[in-house]
Design a protein around this nucleic acid. Structure first.
Lengths: 210, 210
DNA sequence: TCCGTAATTATACAGATGTATAATTACGGA
DNA sequence: TCCGTAATTATACATCTGTATAATTACGGA
């Protein structure tokens, strides 16, 4: 008959705790491991409580993905800051390819959620928003870089280069994170930065002949 | 009392059918959708039969991932063929970034399986093998390209450039496939090829001064 | 043609999962 | 201090999951 003791929490706090617990579960056991009971246990709460803060488990997972993406893009945006474009790019790459953004935890969560994008429209929307934010950041940097480099102003080219640059970061980050053993002695930041600069600073043919 | 009619099949055929059914289920409903019953239904077979061909459902999923990766790398290897390195690169990029390798089906399956890599050692091994195969392919091409370009023979540099090139392909492929609407008017092959060539054909500083 | 063996089906089962609901508790306002 | 309300717990339930096992069927060899 001993009922579990508990204390009330403000709504935002409880939601944040539940979301955090969800992300922890996903990181350690994958999406299938993030069951209602598992999340509740990690949040030191009873399974039934979850349904008072999220109308369904799916909504909770969506909320967790949304906060994850916001933290991700927010962290990158903050790291980039302002200043010369080369420095901003350096900081963007460094933030993307080092802890905590490049931690095993982040990769596990990222892959788990991305797997749902193709089948779940709500998750797909969250995914799109996050990627767009980073791409915009990259387009700004690239535009400034090209300007400093004497390249002609070409929005379409900037857009394409931003896609490529984003792909480099994502690809390297993913490739390395999923197989740390093989790439232990690779300087990821160097490789990503150099590759992006090579893509942006194109051979003389494309450059403005002053 | 009407028992379902059936006919015997050679072991390899049944296994192939079951694996195909597993991949279909994963493609359409994600990994959680690939239940024993769902796969059996798609293979026109009874759930119990599966356990005669795979000791557990997990083993069946692993087998499905293995064949998926083998088909993937096999397809790319075949597409590359032989000839001048520029042509081989062009064909590798084209094969990677167009149907059927870049189809929604492939992306769905790829993301579903990759999500398991961080938590499942067996899946991680399959993942590593596949990526290594493609990277070796790229290293060969890059080595030839650099030779033709008069770059010094630098195995470590070649290795790093192969990682970057692979990242470009993967990143662009993933980015575009997960959000087809946004990137409808992007020539993916052009973008990937140009980016990789930019990375490999480095500024004069690194080139051998003859 | 018939029989033995292997393949396939049918059935059952225990555990896990998301969800609904009623009982209980904590906490702020009167 | 006490009470009403909202938050939290406890319990129950139907469904789905992987798996085990016995009954049945197909098929090749004698």
């Amino acid at each position: 008959m001993n009922r579990r003791s508990f204390h009330h929490e403000p709504e935002e706090v409880r939601r944040a705790t539940l979301i955090r617990a969800t992300l922890d579960a996903v990181a350690e056991r994958g999406l299938p491991g993030a069951t209602v009971r598992e999340v509740a246990q990690r949040a030191l709460v009873t399974p039934g409580l979850i349904r008072r803060y999220f109308v369904s488990k799916d909504r909770m997972v969506e909320a967790a993905y949304a906060t994850f993406v916001e933290d991700l893009t927010g962290g990158i945006t903050e790291a980039v800051g302002s200043g010369p474009p080369v420095d901003r790019l350096e900081r963007l790459v460094r933030a993307s390819c080092t802890d905590p953004l490049a931690s095993p935890r982040h990769v596990a969560i990222w892959t788990a959620f991305v797997a749902t994008v193709t089948t779940d429209p709500a998750m797909a929307q969250i995914h799109r928003d996050g990627y767009r934010a980073v791409r915009v950041l990259l387009e700004d940097i690239i535009a400034d870089l090209r300007r400093a480099d004497g390249c002609p102003d070409d929005p379409d080219m900037i857009h394409r280069q931003a896609i490529a640059a984003n792909a480099v970061i994502d690809g390297i980050w993913l490739e390395v994170s999923l197989d740390r053993g093989t790439f232990a002695d690779i300087d990821v930041v160097d490789l990503a930065r150099d590759s992006i600069l090579a893509i942006i600073t194109r051979p003389s043919a494309e450059r403005d002949p002053t």
